[in-house]
Design a protein around this nucleic acid. Structure first.
Length: 784
RNA sequence: GCGAGGAUGGCGGAAUCGGUAGACGCGCUAGAUUUAGGAUCUAGUACCGCAAGGUGUGUGGGUUCAAGUCCCAUUCCUCGCACCA
């Protein structure tokens, strides 16, 4: 994932990019054709805030940050291909955001709608549902609790792709991310049922439990439901209006602060339950959300805890409709909570006796029977509902892609034609955050002519959510300079999808969901054949301050990578970050530990370059042992890189260098095995410490780069041993170690084991009941 | 409340088709070298114990010749969602 150009590279950037670079280098040495690009997510609020605070233009601030961060990335020694760099605030990039917007509009995937939206009072802009986080409903960017506003905004119809987005087939992604996306999309199977009010209005509800329809004893509408005003009777009007007014003024936080205590008001109206013609009261309550389903529910207090609480509080009827297995009779008066489990349907007319097995949808015989009944009687139909909402993409801010729409009194909404793109962001605007886009007060931008009729018209002044920029930038890497299309189709079909993507878990249901959606629309626009953007996804953890807290200036626990590079060198910083622990776990920085890497690299240096001081003779067994250590390292390090286990890869390299230190002697350094060892050590180390390994490689006399070396191949015969050490246990406790030929028979192993003095001590005078031999591992003698 | 993940020495962490727990590193102890050294090298370092030996992977059970690893229960921590009908 490309970074936001915030200023300087911080420890988190290093933690995200250095191991990714090591993995890319490993793949290149293995012979793969690797494209490892870097770019900048350059639109966004911090640039505008910097402009307001320091009186510097967002573009100036952004581009100077990009320059600085690019230099810092080069210091890291990362192999980024800078010729492929993508900068999203560049008009040559964002013109394609605008182009996509018009294509979405043509396809009906972009639309404008007036509705209550989430508004961040600090950022002064609307937000997408995905950008409101936590139980206090805070702005994802700045942490301020959001409020509701009724505004006309542009949306992308991501809900059209809900079902396809639930399909993760062939994707090697963390289960956590797949689960989070699945829950976010929130598919529910059930039925849509239409009730009629006594005045004759259709009131449609969604339910996952149509089998409990005969237990519906009242209806509840969301306070914002459009029928509330019509249905409310005169004698109830003042109470209902007061309730609606109160609900509209309450924030979501206030609603939650009231806990789960139910509130509501009777409208005075009644509806007819279509399955049994029962006359049931219609209430309004804020526990029914206008934004989910149809904004109205049938209430089945017997089977739903919320409806149960509501019924008990307001004295409404409760009709038992499911008899749990093993219960003879259900008495409504005895109930203390709703029953949502399996059982047999009762009091349900034609469905009496049907079995509710607790499964969802048509897998449940009772639900299937209910849907069939509804469809047969024209009272409802099978229906699927999603939690996912359409993506609100309008932002009332300056530093983003202008939405390429013109409003004409004569022609209405007119997309800007392709040959007039990009709609460039004017540079001379006032950045005061007024709650309206700063572009609104820029006359030259605002006033234009209609592309269709040529009459006076006004531009849309909102800009696009920056998550649009990041939804397709990976395509742009393939042909960043192209000005005839967003990307080269042939290259895209050859290179995409991204075979390995890495980034933080915080984008599990933001960027990673939007990018999947965009990729599918790009496919459906006929621009590529790619279904999914990222085949394999890995979430690295977060690097914390030494105090085990998130790094922040106010805590004073920020680790500055520039200072570390000055003191220890880039390779040491890279390697230490990889050594600290598993990459997906992250963890606290520890300034003591980095010395271990410094010592390791110093040891490698002298191992390769210093003459041997010990003039002991190396015999054939010594040379064989060294070769064995080398090939164990090749095997382990290769597997570790493949699995992104950089910490154990470095541990293996340390083990190899320790073995080499022990083996080094004036005769050994003349041997082929020693030359293989040094060559292997440097090639295995190259992805982790690219500068050090290159320097040593050249000092050894090579003229080509170590980074162009072929990854060493593992020779299994080199690691085979003539004898193996086995543990001997007596009753599961280790009592001795024995050495046996590697292909010794079980019988021979047992003879050797029993001959051991210490084993004999524990076995003496007892019966051996069982003898377990795991060849090459251990012997366990069970005695009594 | 629902869902996911985790708990191993003084510290970061190794090891899970069940098979010698603590690889590798930090720190610490002792020694060597040194005018000196936050340098380097050597040896040691889970805990209790003089030793023999015993005990140990959050807690309590279970399966097994054998459990960090499998099963049941439970505590705590982290993350995500949350009146979603």
């Amino acid at each position: 994932m490309y970074p936001y150009p915030s200023g300087d590279l911080h420890a988190g950037h290093w933690y995200a990019e250095a191991p990714a670079d090591a993995a890319a280098r490993f793949k290149r040495m293995q012979g793969y054709n690797v494209l490892f690009p870097m770019g900048f997510d350059a639109f966004g609020l911090p640039a505008e805030n910097a402009a307001i605070k320091r009186n510097i233009h967002p573009a100036t601030w952004t581009y100077s940050n990009i320059e600085r961060m690019t230099e810092q990335f080069k210091q890291m020694g990362a192999m980024f291909d800078w010729s492929k760099r993508v900068v999203t605030c560049d008009p040559q990039y964002y013109r394609w955001n605008q182009w996509f917007f018009t294509k979405f509009y043509e396809k009906g995937l972009a639309y404008k709608k007036l509705s209550p939206v989430d508004w961040c009072p600090n950022c002064n802009t609307t937000l997408a549902r995905e950008q409101v986080v936590g139980d206090e409903r805070r702005c994802e960017r700045c942490g301020t609790p959001v409020i509701k506003k009724n505004l006309s905004q542009w949306y992308f119809k991501i809900t059209d792709y809900a079902d396809e987005l639930l399909d993760f087939a062939g994707m090697d992604w963390p289960d956590k991310v797949k689960t989070m996306q699945t829950n976010w999309i929130g598919r529910s199977e059930g039925a849509e049922v239409t009730f009629k009010s006594e005045q004759g209005d259709d009131i449609t509800v969604f339910t996952t439990r149509p089998d409990t329809l005969w237990g519906a004893t009242f209806m509840v509408l969301a306070p914002e439901h459009p029928l509330v005003d019509r249905l409310t009777t005169d004698d109830q009007r003042s109470a209902v209006e007061a309730y609606v007014e109160r609900a509209s003024r309450m924030t979501d936080i206030d609603r939650q602060a009231e806990g789960k205590e139910k509130t509501g008001e009777f409208t005075g109206a009644y509806a007819i339950n279509p399955v049994n013609n029962a006359r049931i009261p219609i209430w309004i309550a804020d526990y029914v959300l206008m934004s989910y389903g149809t904004g109205a529910i049938m209430a089945v207090p017997y089977g739903d805890q919320r409806d149960f609480e509501f019924a008990r509080k307001f004295g409404l009827d409760i009709v038992p409709v499911v008899r749990p297995d093993g219960v003879d009779e259900v008495d409504e008066a005895d109930l203390s909570e709703a029953y949502a489990g399996p059982g047999v349907l009762i009091n349900s007319g034609p469905l009496d006796g049907k079995v509710n097995n607790g499964e969802k949808g048509r897998d449940n015989p009772a639900v299937a029977a209910a849907i069939d009944w509804l469809e047969h009687h024209n009272a409802g139909r099978e229906q699927v509902t999603y939690r996912l909402r359409d993506w609100l993409v309008s932002r009332q801010r300056y530093w983003g892609t202008p939405i390429p729409i013109v409003y004409c009194d004569a022609c209405g909404i007119v997309p800007v034609p392709e040959d007039q793109l990009p709609v460039e962001l004017p540079s001379d605007v006032a950045f005061m955050p007024t709650g309206e886009s700063p572009l609104r007060s820029h006359e030259g931008f605002l006033n234009t002519t209609c592309p269709e009729c040529g009459g006076a018209a006004q531009r849309e002044t909102d800009t696009m959510d920056t998550f649009i920029d990041s939804s397709w930038y990976f395509f742009r890497y393939l042909s960043p300079g192209l000005d005839s299309a967003p990307f080269d189709r042939t290259l895209a079909n050859a290179w995409m999808p991204v075979e390995q993507y890495t980034g933080g878990i915080e984008h599990a249901i933001l960027h990673l969901l939007y990018a999947r959606f965009f990729t599918k629309v790009i496919r459906d626009l006929g621009l590529s054949d790619v279904d999914e953007p990222f085949t394999r996804m890995f979430n690295q953890g977060m690097i914390l301050g030494e105090d085990n807290e998130k790094m922040s200036k106010s805590r004073g626990n920020v680790v500055n990578p520039d200072e570390l590079v000055t003191e220890y060198g880039a390779d040491t910083v890279r390697a230490y970050l990889m050594f600290i622990g598993p990459w997906d776990e992250g963890g606290p920085w520890n300034s003591d530990g980095i010395n271990g890497i410094t010592k390791f690299f110093n040891r490698v240096w002298s191992l390769v370059l210093e003459p041997a001081t010990d003039d002991g003779a190396a015999n054939e067994a010594d040379r064989k042992a060294l070769r064995r250590a080398v090939h164990i390292a090749i095997k382990e390090v290769s597997e570790d890189f493949q699995n992104f286990q950089f910490n154990t890869a470095i541990a293996e390299l340390m083990t190899l260098s320790n073995a080499m230190s022990k083996a080094k002697s004036s005769t050994m350094v003349e041997a082929d095995e020693w030359r293989e060892a040094t060559r292997t050590l440097l090639t295995l180390l190259a992805p982790i410490a690219p500068h050090l390994s290159e320097e040593l490689w050249h000092r050894l006399g090579h003229s080509a780069s170590v980074h162009l070396e072929v990854w060493p191949s593992f020779d299994p015969t080199a690691t085979e041993l003539d004898t193996v050490t086995m543990a001997v246990q007596v009753n599961g406790k280790v009592r001795a170690q024995i050495e046996v030929p590697k292909d010794a028979s079980k019988e021979d192993i047992l003879v050797t084991a029993k001959a051991n003095d210490n084993v004999a001590r524990y076995v003496e005078g007892a019966n051996i009941n069982r003898e377990i031999v795991v060849p090459g591992k251990l012997v366990n003698l069970v005695v009594k």
